[in-house]
């Protein structure tokens, strides 16, 4: 496989990650969100493997495997069972309307492009152009957390942010050290469990996972 082709393949995967980020942003159905999230993890893992292949950094294979297991199978599964147990798989409304959210998302992508422009000029890595996508994924994850009313989708936004950070790490420096990656993976797993517990508590307290309910906790005037 020539370097040219690898770069193009990586570019394609980056584009797919960006696309899934947007899909997460606008999708309303809970299970669809989960599926898209799994796809994003899949593209991420694939991209990591491709970079590992191209650069000869073999620890990236392990990262890739870890990503695939964690983000394509384990986390979606945990969230899936949660959704099932809590019976919350109906459509969820977002705070902003969809076109406005999309426009905001486009604005953020352009903003990320603007931010990473100097890096792109300085870096010599072949993955440098995907840095903007990585940053955009982080931003879009954050935007998703802002625009969603539902705790589960906020958590998925959070996980999508983490995906973006991981992607940024691979595209900025060809991956973090192995130890860090293992640690992050473990953290994520624990986070998912903790979120699960939180969901149960929120659900029993407010009889809903709609975070708008939490406005009741506000100090009165």
């Amino acid at each position: 496989m020539s370097t040219e082709l690898v770069i193009q393949l990586n570019t394609l995967l980056a584009a797919m990650i960006l696309l899934t980020s947007f899909a997460l942003l606008v999708q309303r159905r809970m299970f669809a969100i989960l599926h898209i999230f799994a796809w994003q993890g899949f593209f991420l893992g694939l991209s990591t493997a491709v970079i590992g292949f191209a650069t000869g950094e073999h620890h990236l294979y392990i990262s890739s495997l870890l990503t695939l297991v964690m983000k394509v199978i384990l986390l979606p599964y945990i969230l899936y069972t949660l959704i099932h147990k809590l019976k919350i798989h109906r459509e969820i409304e977002s705070v902003m309307n969809t076109p406005a959210t999309m426009l905001a998302g486009i604005g953020l992508v352009i903003f990320s492009y603007h931010l990473t422009a100097p890096v792109r000029q300085l870096s010599t890595l072949m993955t440098r152009s995907t840095l903007a996508v990585a940053l955009a994924t982080v931003m879009l994850g954050l935007l998703m957390m802002v625009t969603r009313r539902h705790a589960v989708s906020q958590i998925i936004g959070f996980l999508a942010m983490e995906n973006g950070l991981f992607f940024a790490a691979t595209s900025a420096t060809y991956g973090m050290p192995m130890v860090v990656e293992l640690g992050v993976a473990l953290d994520l797993l624990i986070a998912a469990f903790i979120f699960g517990i939180f969901f149960f508590h929120i659900n029993t307290t407010f009889d809903s996972l709609d975070v708008e309910q939490m406005a009741k906790l506000k100090e009165g005037d």
Binding site: F111, L115, V146, K218
Partner: peptide, 25 residues
């Protein structure tokens, strides 16, 4: 200004977000 503190979680995330974006910008 007190309306900023309205108990809505996503608005708090939004504040964080805006701060982040401004700082980056």
């Amino acid at each position: 200004l007190r309306r900023l503190q309205n108990g809505q979680v996503h608005l708090y995330i939004l504040y964080t977000f805006i701060t982040l974006v401004v700082l980056l910008a």
